[in-house]
Design a protein around this nucleic acid. Structure first.
Lengths: 253, 253
DNA sequence: CGATCCGTTGACATCGGTCAACGGACGTGG
DNA sequence: CCACGTCCGTTGACCGATGTCAACGGATCG
């Protein structure tokens, strides 16, 4: 019962799966392959041929700019997967690659189609997961557009805590997070050295502890406060809970 | 034949529609309603009850932060529509509202379902449109994360040129664009006064002309250069064309 | 043992934000 | 028709957050 495959765990939480769905999925996902760190799974301009499911490690979506800069668009953690719309997508407008060594499954387009057509329960859960990823990406837009560097970093840390916890990879307050400061910089739109300084600031405020492969959040509520983090957006349930303040007609306060 | 409804025009370009599809769509979209500027169509936390199709004017998706700040997530121009996944969406994680006076159609969830189930051609085109919006939002992520203020503004202007042209609302080099500098600021993650200054800079470089309700781009190629704009991402056809530079394994240059 | 990668720190430069004032366009009420 | 208020664009002075450049040291790996 405690089939702790992160994909099952995640999907089941979004939309409870039948035993048959679980069995089918478990089979699809049975034989992960190892992929080294910093390896592209698919590049911008490639035509996608299936879906990648992350089983272990951290990957990301990213784009490279003409000047060589990189923007990380999203982190993919165990249980996450790349685009479902393989059939519609002609070419990737961004790349997907590993950041740390990963284990993952490549699900061929054919199987994906089958999964979505013949297993409605799975389809629903996966569609919900995709909506969740879209919501997260909107949060990132807010993060990059409207928050200070320290807040951005704090927000990422809060987000990862919630996401990793939901697949059993984080404790109440901490998790393993073996990313480079360069990676974080490319995700938060800052400079690597400023990532470092911001970490230092968060540490000095006693909001987090120890850096280096492992994050410990000393005061989750406080960190969420600093980041203006909204726990709700990662849970597709009931009302959102943030922004209770009256915001009439889209005008600024 | 030149049925210039922006929705038809846009969808037909993405995936050619049958005459019956066109007739059906034209009927769905027959009676637009007027909505004043700065009016919310749906708020964060609301449960969506259908899809809005913009026929005229400019709307946006946005989020309000606890401190009252606003981040515009996307512009919606004629032919664009709000979320197709009404059935899956419990609550909105962001708001949608007009920026200028608009004319639009509200398509009830029931009709949307019918549209997607019974009219595969339309469904395909609309799904492609949704993918296009996702691609655009990734561009915005890059914009906010990795570009200077002047570049961000230039990028928005380039994007709007392409998008408005594709629905016949822009000439070769210019278009009507009655947004406030505050709106632009909230979209580009800058300050209203800096939007002003950046406009001035672009004008002084002779890249654009006249501001005030109307944009004229004097040198499209140059502006796209400044913005590092990639025409391809708005056209779902063939290969992407940008980033020809070799970018091995996601490493920075 | 040397090369490389990564985190760390300091000094310095600058982009963009903040604060404040002004003026034109527009709408509203006297 | 005029007086006033409001919204918006514009500009200047100032300052702070963040980027840039450079150096160093520890860890890891061949």
């Amino acid at each position: 019962m405690p089939d702790d495959h992160p994909l099952l765990r995640k999907l089941d939480a979004l939309s409870p799966l039948s035993d048959e769905d679980r069995r089918f999925l478990a089979q699809v996902v049975a034989h992960p392959m190892a992929v080294p760190a910093r390896t592209d799974l698919i590049r911008e301009g490639d035509r996608p041929h299936g879906v990648f499911v992350i089983v272990e490690g951290i990957a990301c979506r990213y784009k490279i700019l003409p000047d060589g800069g990189r923007q990380v668009l999203a982190f993919l953690v165990p249980g996450d997967f790349s685009d479902l719309d393989v059939d519609l997508l002609e070419v990737m407008d961004h790349a997907v690659g590993t950041l740390t060594p990963c284990r993952m499954v490549h699900v061929p387009a054919r199987t994906v189609r089958d999964l979505l057509d013949a297993h409605l329960g799975i389809a629903r859960a996966m569609r919900l997961a995709a909506l969740g990823e879209a919501a997260t990406s909107r949060q990132w837009l807010v993060n990059l557009g409207r928050r200070s560097c320290e807040q951005r970093l704090a927000h990422v840390l809060c987000e990862m805590l919630v996401r990793l916890r939901s697949v059993g990879l984080a404790s109440e307050t901490g998790y393993h997070f073996p990313l480079t400061q360069v990676d974080l910089a490319d995700a938060t739109g800052m400079t690597p050295v400023h990532v470092n300084r911001s970490f230092k600031a968060l540490r000095e405020r006693s909001l987090i502890e120890g850096w280096g492969r492992s994050i410990v959040i000393r005061d989750v509520a406080a960190l969420e406060g600093v980041a203006a983090f909204d726990r709700a957006y990662l849970h597709r349930t009931g009302s959102t809970g943030s922004c209770s303040r009256s915001a009439p007609a889209g005008l600024r306060a």
